[in-house]
């Protein structure tokens, strides 16, 4: 599928900077109405460029996950414009969004979200199944992805036979097996202890260094955010701070 042609790079306002992958203009996400109205996102403008490692921070309920889901095209904004690689996502239908996710995004969740009672290998194979990759090639690529995250030999294990850190590694392997240009992680270390969290972050940083992929990650912890080279800070659905970890976290 030649989606790279459709979701090509068009960046009007940057000459020397890498092209923008994610560009949001005045994005709103409003739940409920009247007095019960909640503005999960309240006029967000942001641009994320190719190869950036961005951490999204902010207090609980500030709209981090909402923003992340918007970026991942899992949710649609109430108002505003979202361009992914220059393509207006608002003009895409459900299946086009699915293809966009399939080919351009890898997801990592706080709660791992592996298929239960299915082996690690099968979990990693899953995106390739939807891509119509042949069985033998699929298995080989899934094995390789598991090797990269250090889980060689654990292929036949089901999620309940794996530790939290191992499950999250399986999830990373699944997110990366299709070699997407963008990796989206919502609190990837939220359910892990500090040691485990650090090793996961080292792994992500290494993968990013090797592949030059764009990573957007939600986190609560400043220590984790320091792995990123840019931090977006949300309060009450508004993007209030944007800068290097040192600038934002000081």
């Amino acid at each position: 599928m030649s989606n790279s042609a459709r979701f090509g790079n068009h960046d009007p306002d940057a000459r020397d900077l890498p092209p923008a992958v994610i560009r949001m203009r005045n994005i709103f996400k409003i739940y409920g109405s009247g007095s019960a109205e909640v503005r999960a996102l309240d006029g967000v403008d942001l641009t994320i460029r190719e190869g950036e490692f961005v951490a999204i921070m902010g207090p609980s309920g500030s709209g981090k996950s909402t923003c992340m889901n918007m970026i991942g095209c899992l949710d649609v904004p109430s108002a505003g414009e979202y361009l992914f690689r220059g393509v207006n996502v608002g003009g895409l239908d459900r299946d086009e969004l699915a293809l966009l996710r399939r080919h351009f995004m890898g997801f990592i969740f706080q709660s791992f979200n592996l298929l239960p009672r299915v082996t690690a290998l099968a979990n990693v194979e899953l995106p390739l199944i939807y891509d119509g990759v042949r069985r033998s090639e699929r298995k080989a690529r899934a094995r390789e992805a598991l090797r990269i995250v250090g889980l060689s030999g654990r292929e036949p294990a089901t999620p309940n036979q794996l530790s939290g850190g191992q499950q999250q590694r399986v999830a990373i392997a699944r997110a990366l097996v299709t070699e997407p240009p963008v990796l989206l992680a919502d609190e990837p270390t939220g359910n892990l202890d500090t040691g485990m969290a650090d090793s996961i972050m080292v792994q992500l940083a290494q993968i990013r260094a090797e592949r030059g992929i764009t990573i957007v990650m939600v986190t609560h912890e400043p220590d984790i955010a320091r792995y990123a080279d840019r931090v977006l800070y949300f309060v009450d659905g508004k993007l209030v701070k944007d800068g290097t970890p040192d600038e934002v976290l000081s």
């Binding site: 991942g72 979200n113 899953l126 939807y130």
Partner: peptide, 8 residues
């Protein structure tokens, strides 16, 4: 999960 991964 399947939808997130790209199932249509």
């Amino acid at each position: 999960i399947r939808l997130a991964i790209g199932a249509r």
